[in-house]
Amino acid sequence: MSESSVVQISAVTGWIIGISHVKDSGYQCWVINPDLDVLSDGTLYSTSSAAMSAGRAFVERFS
């Protein structure tokens, strides 16, 4: 299992968007929805801003 750390958290009404850095791999986004489900697209991004953009797009689409 790869070592990872949370590098950024953002909140939108009812949602939390998080970005983790996976050592030697990249950044991944995950969201917590209003039902408290934790969701991830499983994609590794080269920058934290790209991962955050993906998380925001997900929230905009499903909220």
Rank of each mutant, 00 (worst) to 15 (best):
residue 32 I to E: 11
residue 39 L to T: 11
residue 47 T to N: 09
residue 29 C to Y: 07
residue 25 S to M: 07
residue 34 P to C: 05
residue 46 S to E: 14
residue 49 S to F: 11
residue 48 S to R: 12
residue 53 S to Q: 15
residue 38 V to H: 02
residue 49 S to W: 10
residue 28 Q to C: 08
residue 46 S to C: 08
residue 47 T to C: 09
residue 52 M to S: 05
residue 45 Y to F: 15
residue 33 N to C: 09
residue 55 G to Y: 00
residue 25 S to D: 03
residue 32 I to F: 02
residue 39 L to Q: 10
residue 31 V to M: 03
residue 31 V to H: 00
residue 26 G to W: 12
residue 33 N to I: 01
residue 31 V to W: 01
residue 36 L to R: 08
residue 48 S to K: 14
residue 24 D to E: 15
residue 56 R to H: 15
residue 26 G to D: 07
residue 54 A to D: 03
residue 26 G to E: 07
residue 45 Y to P: 00
residue 40 S to N: 03
residue 52 M to G: 00
residue 23 K to H: 03
residue 35 D to I: 03
residue 37 D to Y: 13
residue 49 S to H: 10
residue 31 V to A: 11
residue 24 D to G: 14
residue 48 S to A: 14
residue 27 Y to C: 08
residue 32 I to L: 11
residue 33 N to M: 06
residue 52 M to K: 09
residue 33 N to W: 02
residue 49 S to N: 12
residue 36 L to P: 00
residue 31 V to C: 12
residue 47 T to H: 06
residue 46 S to W: 03
residue 25 S to T: 03
residue 30 W to E: 04
residue 43 T to I: 15
residue 29 C to K: 06
residue 28 Q to T: 06
residue 48 S to T: 06
residue 28 Q to H: 07
residue 48 S to Y: 07
residue 45 Y to H: 10
residue 25 S to R: 10
residue 48 S to H: 13
residue 35 D to C: 05
residue 54 A to E: 09
residue 39 L to A: 11
residue 55 G to E: 00
residue 25 S to A: 10
residue 46 S to Q: 13
residue 35 D to F: 07
residue 23 K to F: 06
residue 44 L to P: 01
residue 36 L to I: 00
residue 39 L to E: 10
residue 31 V to F: 04
residue 41 D to H: 02
residue 51 A to K: 00
residue 34 P to H: 12
residue 37 D to I: 14
residue 56 R to S: 15
residue 27 Y to W: 11
residue 57 A to F: 12
residue 50 A to F: 02
residue 45 Y to M: 06
residue 27 Y to N: 04
residue 55 G to M: 08
residue 55 G to S: 08
residue 41 D to K: 03
residue 28 Q to N: 07
residue 49 S to Y: 10
residue 30 W to F: 12
residue 26 G to S: 11
residue 42 G to Q: 08
residue 43 T to A: 15
residue 34 P to M: 12
residue 26 G to N: 08
residue 38 V to T: 05
residue 40 S to G: 05
residue 28 Q to D: 01
residue 34 P to V: 09
residue 42 G to S: 11
residue 41 D to A: 04
residue 53 S to H: 09
residue 50 A to G: 01
residue 57 A to D: 13
residue 25 S to L: 09
residue 35 D to E: 09
residue 24 D to R: 15
residue 55 G to H: 01
residue 41 D to Y: 04
residue 47 T to I: 09
residue 43 T to N: 14
residue 33 N to G: 05
residue 47 T to P: 04
residue 56 R to V: 15
residue 33 N to V: 02
